[in-house]
Simulated scan of single mutants.
Amino acid sequence: MVANKKIFLILLFFLLAIVFSPSAGYSKNLIWGGCGITKKAFMAELSKAYEKKTGIKIHLKGGGATYGIRAVGIGRIDIGGSCRHKIKGDILERNTRLIPVAWDALVVIVNKKNRLTNITTKQLKDILLGKITNWKQIGGRDRPIKLVIRKSKISGVSYMLREMVFGDADKDFRPDAIIKKSSGPVEKYVEKDLDAIAVSGISSARKRKGLKFLKLNGLAPTKKNIGTGKYPLVRPLYLTVALRPSKMVRDFIKFALSDEGQAIISKQGTVNLKEKNGTH
Rank of each mutant, 00 (worst) to 15 (best):
P175D: 14
P175R: 15
P175Q: 13
D176F: 09
D176V: 08
D176G: 07
A177H: 08
A177L: 05
A177N: 09
A177K: 12
A177C: 07
I178P: 05
I178N: 08
I179S: 04
I179H: 02
K180C: 03
S183V: 11
S183M: 13
S183T: 15
G184M: 09
G184S: 08
G184C: 00
G184I: 15
P185F: 10
P185W: 15
V186T: 08
E187W: 07
E187R: 10
Y189V: 09
Y189W: 12
V190K: 14
K192R: 15
D193A: 09
D193R: 11
D193G: 09
D195H: 11
A196I: 12
A196Q: 11
I197W: 13
A198N: 11
A198K: 12
V199W: 02
V199Q: 10
S200K: 00
S200M: 00
G201S: 12
G201E: 11
G201N: 14
I202C: 02
S203V: 00
S203K: 08
S203P: 06
S203D: 07
S203G: 15
S204Y: 12
A205F: 10
R206H: 05
K207C: 00
R208G: 06
R208L: 15
G210D: 12
G210I: 13
G210V: 08
L211C: 04
L211D: 03
K212I: 09
K212H: 09
K212C: 08
F213I: 03
K215L: 13
L216A: 09
L216Y: 13
N217F: 05
N217C: 02
N217G: 01
N217K: 06
G218H: 11
G218W: 13
A220Y: 10
A220Q: 08
T222I: 09
K224I: 01
N225M: 11
I226F: 08
G227D: 02
T228G: 00
T228K: 02
G229F: 05
K230L: 04
K230H: 05
Y231P: 00
Y231A: 01
P232C: 03
P232Y: 08
P232Q: 07
L233C: 05
L233W: 13
V234N: 03
R235C: 07
R235V: 15
R235G: 06
R235Q: 11
P236L: 07
P236W: 10
V241W: 05
A242F: 05
A242T: 09
L243G: 06
R244H: 10
P245G: 02
S246W: 04
S246M: 03
S246V: 01
K247Y: 06
M248R: 13
M248K: 14
V249Q: 00
R250V: 08
D251K: 06
D251W: 01
F252K: 00
F252E: 00
F252S: 00
I253S: 02
K254L: 04
F255K: 08
A256Y: 07
S258I: 02
D259R: 15
D259S: 13
D259M: 03
E260R: 12
G261Q: 06
G261D: 03
G261I: 01
Q262H: 03
Q262C: 01
A263E: 13
A263L: 07
I264C: 02
I264G: 06
I264D: 07
